[in-house]
Simulated scan of single mutants.
Amino acid sequence: MVTSILEKKYFITLSVFFIFLVTIIFIGYKFIYIPYKETAKVLEFFSKGYTLQGIYELRYPLSPEFYDAIKKFKSYVDVNEMISATKRQAQYLALQNQINPHFLYNSLEGIRGEAISAGLNSLAEMTEALATFFRYIISNMEHLVTLEDELESIENYFMIHCIIKCNR
């Protein structure tokens, strides 16, 4: 009878220890191993260049410091992307601003040449005044100009309107 009681105590102790061990293993698996594997997988994909988005959405960061580092990294990437996009836009606008005035000047010079060859001197003068006026406006948008340059621009503008009114 004494052995039976000892066996029951031993069995109960062994059962409690086994349940405790299974619980510890389950908790370790659920809250340590699975988060570690998921984070490691996302970081592996990121290091191979497959994804950038998933790195910001880690469900289980390894530590608060790691999470803060990821947030800081995201802010750097966002700033760099914004700077890159802004730089590309500025380059595009600079190129567009170079092309448009040249196209305008070349077109006006072509019209002026046709007017001269057709003997339309007033049209040639008006086209030249218009080209000079546009060149002045476009090239001096951000700079201070002399009073002489401003008066010359006003004369070109006035000449355009005089030629238009005189030919009516």
Rank of each mutant, 00 (worst) to 15 (best):
S47M: 07
A69H: 02
N156C: 02
I27V: 14
T51D: 09
N100E: 13
A40R: 15
F66I: 12
F26P: 00
Y67H: 14
L62S: 13
T51F: 02
I83F: 10
A69S: 08
G28Y: 03
S153G: 13
N106C: 05
V2M: 13
Y67D: 14
I163W: 03
L52D: 10
F133G: 05
L151I: 11
I5Q: 08
V22M: 08
I160T: 00
N156I: 00
L58S: 05
I27N: 04
E57Q: 12
F18V: 05
Q96T: 14
A40G: 03
N97E: 12
T127E: 06
L144Y: 12
F45N: 14
F46M: 06
L123Q: 03
N140E: 03
I163Y: 03
I25Q: 08
R135P: 03
I12D: 01
Y50P: 00
Q53I: 15
S84R: 11
L108F: 06
I32Q: 08
C166A: 13
L62Y: 09
R88W: 09
E109Y: 10
Y33T: 06
E152T: 04
Y157T: 03
L120Y: 08
V2P: 07
R168K: 07
M159H: 04
T132A: 14
T39L: 06
Y50I: 08
S117M: 07
K165V: 13
L147T: 13
I19Q: 00
L93P: 02
N167M: 04
T127A: 15
Y136S: 15
I5L: 14
I154N: 08
A69R: 11
F17A: 01
L21E: 01
F73N: 05
A90R: 07
A40W: 09
Y67Q: 15
R88M: 13
N80D: 09
R59A: 07
V77G: 02
C162S: 12
S153M: 11
V2H: 13
D68A: 10
Q98T: 08
E148R: 12
L147Q: 12
V42H: 03
